[in-house]
Design a protein around this nucleic acid. Structure first.
Lengths: 347, 347
DNA sequence: ACAAATAATGATACCGGTGTCATAAACCTA
DNA sequence: TAGGTTTATGACACCGGTATCATTATTTGT
């Protein structure tokens, strides 16, 4: 009987559709649809029969057809500026960790927040692809225009960002307490006996830059010190800017014995400056970074830095989107912590 | 007249469909479809009228619906093992460069070639998403099982790989002449007067590892030298393996005055070894890498290395998929070249 | 045991496009 | 100008799913 039909179908080696399942299970396609979508109103016996057929002929619903009917795709967008920053790479891996085996795929979408079409590009992307959800990485996770757009589009979204004291928007957020780790870094340098400490800031307008500075300052203040504005220089989270800033700082009359850079990339720039000036790390100059990027372990000596669990943060962000709406947490907060290596030493 | 209808529609602020366009342009949806797909058999007047409406109401065909009808999506897959290698990051950027504004989106799909489900995972991915095309990065661009799968699935695909003397498969390929750059590196070290030269190989079974070794050897041979098996050590393209290999090589009685590492990651590992042994680069030890990765510029001193235009290669791969089938080139070959920086010096 | 309430299922339209094929319009040719 | 070709267009089915709502099967109450 239908056993034969099933065997015959399997022989045909063609991609199965919901109609094939329906026919072989002797139910309507709607019932198959119900089984696929785990509707409770299907008799157990029917469900099992349908599932058996699905299993046997290897049916997998077509995401395009499903998406068309649902009016949304099964794609998760990862939107970011700064494509070459290391944390973007880590976060992409984290998102992929979460999505693996979920049936959703990750669509990566870099953008340029200084472009005229910044917002419109992203609007097109989200609307056109009818994304199931998007993950927004820093620094654009702070962008007011973008957040407004996301609200308007009513798409599920998760921001990944440094903790912000004030703002709360709709949507979900995965946040890092960057202050804590930076505070630890400040205390660490102070405890090592450093008094003259240089500070390389992040670019203006970045919440993370503000937070890191505030945290580091707290750490110094806990030991009766403070950031010395004469030993502070503006950076832009890039290697070159870190190099330039370090050179500037190290050129001051009261040359510091330690430098904290607001990210690893700039800390590595400071390494270069030290090298050029013939300063040994850490004998002549202690350097501390932020990110615990792969570079931190590769430079010599290994860099003392603050660990930001970026991969896990992005994984949490993606998990949020995969979770049932009811079970989602509005905010997930990650801590940061100091990783002491060999680039910092007692004065 | 219809002017009003158009205005009214625009006021509604709803996503336009092909039916809206058809109605407002007073043609059938099939004709609109023809316009969208640039069918030649549409009268110029009709085409312009339809395009005017499309423009005015901001109609953009839904990729899901279109994909369902076409039986293929507008997504390009990027498939790779080794998610943390730098060239993967570069190549992803290159692919995105090409896709920007093309209407296609990039879906990234890491995989594990040692997994049991390696092939089946990729099959599911390509079949289920009905990808428009896929880009395969090394090392799996050499994998026989994967290539067989791609042929079976008849999906457009482009392999990115080191030039291979022999094999030709179906599909398209973007290849790098890795020999040339490595030959130049060999000559470079020989010309600097080095005789005792260490060599850190890539992992077994990688075409790139074979090519790089062969090229480097050619360079040495051109100056009457050869790779000294006593100064050769196996690496795995990782930082740690490079570090270990360099330590092993530098521990030999006839300590080399220069080391060539088959990629930058391992070269940076050799930096660490040199640091630990108190060897100055390049005064005591010259080091040369391969890849010209971002790290090469960040270490001190900057690393002499062979430039592999990985970003451009991936861009070319993506461009191939976006090009009309008739205009595609089966193979696109990129040269590699030596970038002399400060990690190599005269003996 | 039978009517009413409830649960399970199916018929049909629909999501927003494209393919096929028939038909209408425009273009030749003599 | 009529008849034959060629070109442009449209009607309708279809891609592979889901939503709505009517219908049928089952359970419950009395």
């Amino acid at each position: 009987m239908s056993e034969d039909a099933i065997e015959e179908f399997i022989q045909r080696r063609k991609k199965a559709t919901i109609n094939d399942v329906a026919r072989l299970a002797r139910v309507s396609k709607k019932t198959v649809s119900r089984v696929i979508n785990k509707s409770p109103s299907v008799r157990a016996e029917t469900r099992d029969r349908v599932n058996a057929i699905i299993e046997r002929i290897g049916f997998r619903p077509d995401p395009q057809a499903r998406g068309l009917a649902f009016r949304r795709s099964f794609l998760i967008g990862l939107i970011y500026d700064n494509p070459n920053a290391q944390y973007v790479v880590n976060m992409q891996m984290g998102a992929l960790d979460a999505l693996r085996g979920s049936g959703s795929e990750l669509v990566v979408h870099p953008c340029d927040r200084h472009s005229e079409r910044f917002i419109e590009d992203i609007r097109d992307f989200i609307e056109l692809q009818r994304l199931a959800g998007v993950i927004i990485l820093p620094p654009i996770s702070e962008d007011k225009r973008l957040l407004a757009l996301l609200e308007e589009l009513d798409v599920d979204y998760v921001r990944v960002s440094a903790v912000q004291p004030t703002t709360t928007t709709g949507g979900y957020a995965v946040l890092s307490k960057e202050r804590i780790g930076c505070r630890a870094a400040g205390e660490h340098l102070a405890q090592l006996g450093h008094k003259q400490i240089g500070f390389i800031t992040g670019p203006e307008g970045y919440v993370s830059a503000i937070e890191r500075r505030a945290g580091f300052r707290e750490g110094l203040q806990a030991h009766g010190l403070d950031i010395n504005w004469e030993l502070e220089a503006q950076g832009a989270y890039t290697f070159e800017s870190g190099h330039a800033a370090a050179l500037k700082i190290l050129d001051r009359p009261n040359r510091p014995t330690a430098i904290f850079a607001s990210n690893d990339e700039m800390a590595i720039g400071a390494y270069k400056a030290a090298f050029e000036l013939g300063l040994r790390i850490p004998a002549d100059l202690s350097i501390c970074g932020y990110d615990d990027s792969p570079m931190a372990l590769r430079v010599s000596p290994p860099l003392t830095t603050v660990n930001l669990p970026s991969r896990d943060m992005a994984k949490a962000a993606a998990m949020t989107l995969l979770t049932d709406e009811d079970d989602r947490r509005d905010e997930i907060i990650f801590e940061s912590g100091l990783v002491v290596r060999e680039s910092t030493a007692r004065l």
